[in-house]
Amino acid sequence: MMWILAALLGGAPAWGQAPPEPTIEELLNATDDASRGESSIAVIRMEIKTSRYERSMKMKAWSKGTERSLIKILEPAKDAGLTTLRVGDNLWNYLPKVDRTMKIPSGLMGGSWMGSHFTNDDLVRDSRLSEDFTYELTQRPGEGGDNYIVSCVPKPDAPVVWGKVVAEIRPDKVPVKVDYYDDDGTLVRTMSYDDVREVNGQLSPRIFQLTPHDKPGEYTRMTFEELQLGADIPDEMFNLQALKKQ
């Protein structure tokens, strides 16, 4: 799913200046791009709550284009320096304690990323609602609510694990929440967006919270503490040799 990547990489929201009536495609693009930009540098706090543990991590994320990103853990001290590199569909973890880099094998892509509710897969999947789904507007502002609601069903060959995705988007194209359903139509998880602020003249949510519905009380919440868009990041940052030098 691109949104997590997008979230982690703190991309630039491309909100327009409230044109009279956005197209559905515009709404979905805005959601897909909620925090994506050509290149960005962000500092994110990730708070994870599960029935077993609660942990809070601070991380710095660099992204360039849609294919490359790098995330480095800053806190807690125990995990500081752990770095994840993504290039296309591949993920590597750099483990500073043992000074090794490990590629995550395809068999473990379904596993949790750093103990959060995001899977490794979430980091690399890159589908777009407006391209990989057939969509339909199910509600306009004023029809029982203030926002747009768009129901999206994946196209047959789309690289998507969901059966249906329903996005709620404000008239100013800021996403409110996105519900993810499995093939049986069961609501599996919800991504909700909060704390909308203006960054670089654009409205953008600062808090992304992922709630898995099969685990009551659990969530992973990301807060963008810093966000710098359009930064000039050298390509050399995103290769294996550079991982160790971070």
Partner: peptide, 8 residues
Amino acid sequence: SDGSLGNA
């Protein structure tokens, strides 16, 4: 078990 990435 605490969510961290154990490695050694």
